[in-house]
Every structure is written in C-alpha cells, then in structure tokens.
Nucleic acid binder design. Structure first.
Lengths: 144, 144
DNA sequence: GTTTATTAGGATAAATTTGTCTTATTTAAA
DNA sequence: TTTAAATAAGACAAATTTATCCTAATAAAC
C-alpha cells in the first residue's frame, strides 16, 4: 500500500511525537533502533520530513528531532503520506490510467473511488497525537 | 496501490473476458495494443495468469488467450491481485510490521484493518464479468 | 578556539520491479 | 511434411526503490 520509505516515515514520526510529548528530543540512532529501520535510509526520510515541516531537526551535540507539542495534534497521517509517497494513492487510477475520471472511467473506477475516499478520510482524520498516545500507554507497538 | 504488473494483469483479463464473451480468442499483440501496455512485459504477466488458471492460453497459429464463458463470472478481482501481487495488500500490516495483529497491533492497525477489509470485500465481490460488460457497452475504458 | 556529537547532502551500491530480446515449443494450414 | 504464427521460457537490460558511505555544516561543551 505505502512504500517502505513511507512506512518508516510514519513510524519515525509517531516515535518522535511520543518523545516530544514527554519533552524529549531524540536522535537518529535512537529512532532507528526504536522503530527497527536501517539507520542511513531513515536519515534520508527524516530529512524529507523536516523539509516538509512535519518534524524539526536540530544539528550539533544534543541535537536530534522533535515536534512542537502544540503541532502534534494537527499533523495527520495524510501529511506524511503525501510528503513521501505523493497523493497518487488517494487520487490516482486503480489501473494506472492517466485520464481516468468520472466521465472517462476505467472499469474499476467507481469501486476504487470508494476505497480511496475511505483511505483519504481516515488518513485526514487520524492525528499523530492519537497514534503517539496509544504507543505511550503501551496499547500499540512500532517494531516486530 | 497495486504493482504495474498487477494493473496490466487486471486490464488484460478484462479485455480477454470481453472478447471471450463475444466468442473471440485474442493474441498478445492485440491485447497489448488494446490495453496500452508493453508487449513483452505483458507476455510475462499473461503467462502468470495462465499458470494460475485465470486465463487459458493456446499455442500455434490461431492461438492466443481466452476464458471459458462459464468461468468469467466466477473470476473476481481478488484472484488476479492475489496471483500477481500476493495477498499482502489485503492482510499485511500498514506499517510493514511482521507480527502485527489484534493482540500486538501497530499504531494504525485498527484504522487500516477497516480499509483493507473494505478492499478485500470489494475485490471478492467484483467479478470480471461485470467489468467486461461495462467495457463492452462503452461505459468504461482500458487505455489513456 | 578546539573538540565532538549531531544532522545535511551527495555519491554510490544493492535489490527489486519493469521491460526487452532471443530461442524453444506448439500447432494450424498449406 | 514443411512453413508460419502463435505462446513459453530463460537471459539480459533499464529504471526505480531501498540502503549505505563519506564528507560538510552546525552547534554544544570544554
């Protein structure tokens, strides 16, 4: 459904958010370890997230990644997915046609539209805050 | 959502089904042309579909691909997707965890489960027959 | 100011997916 | 029986995604 990069990006953002809620800034090594992802590849993804203003990065010793507490609830899943995988998953044709739309539909257009709309709605409504708190209280997990 | 191979596979199967409903066997060149896909790559995908008993292939002059009329309605989208992309899209974890399940859920487990279940239900209920007839009467399109 | 721990960025490499090419096999028809 | 037109299969190539490595830039702490 999503690319590996996007999966790591979502996992990383949730972990950073959880730590930020507790007032902690976290570095690359810790993030990779806690979300069980390749370190250098994760670095690239964190760069992308920082460029898209989803997370903040701080250089130097004691540096790392964090999210302003007041922003955590306004970051939704869709922001991460769009930043890393583009919004093709939400708007593109299920059979890969370029001109597919209601007036020139592919055979599965209406069936897929419903699925994609559901995915888009869920991704727009699901905040990183709720995902981070679920993790914080031990209801959910980020690795294995 | 699906791989290119899967997209071509679905498009090809719908086209073959439509022609089979009209009693026509169709060959690789015609299929590629009508679904606007790379010829040699499409050949590989048709082989996969034939091996998975989704379509029949016939060698020799006048050979080509076809589907038994009586089978067309029992072939569902999910059969093609599972054959080409595996059922990971229907059952896998949205964040790529291997052990993700209700008792050990990733942070988006329950949100994604609903989406995936919807996709699975739709794919199980949507028959190639209905997709082929929509194409046949000009309501839907397979290229551009 | 120097050292050191961190992120940023660019070059490169490995793995996977997408796509091509060539030869073998099959079979209808002349 | 020969020819020709089709699919099957395997080797190869290109493109994309995933992943690594090295150097530069930044900034805290001594």
């Amino acid at each position: 459904m999503f690319s590996k990069a996007c999966e790591y990006g979502i996992r990383a953002t949730i972990y950073i958010a959880m730590q930020s809620l507790q007032g902690n800034r976290v570095n690359l090594k810790e993030i990779s370890k806690e979300i069980d992802s390749p370190v250098a590849f994760t670095a690239k993804i964190l760069q992308q997230l920082a460029k898209n203003d989803i997370i903040n990065s701080v250089k130097g010793p004691t540096g790392g990644f964090e999210i302003n507490k007041k922003d955590i609830d306004s970051i939704k899943l869709i922001h991460i997915v769009s930043a890393i995988d583009s919004d093709k998953i939400f708007n593109g044709c299920g059979l890969g046609l370029k001109e597919c739309n209601e007036d020139f539909p592919c055979p599965v257009h209406f069936q897929f539209k419903e699925i994609r709309d559901n995915l888009k709605k869920m991704s727009s409504e699901t905040s990183i805050y709720e995902l981070a708190t679920g993790l914080e209280v031990g209801l959910t997990f980020l690795k294995r």
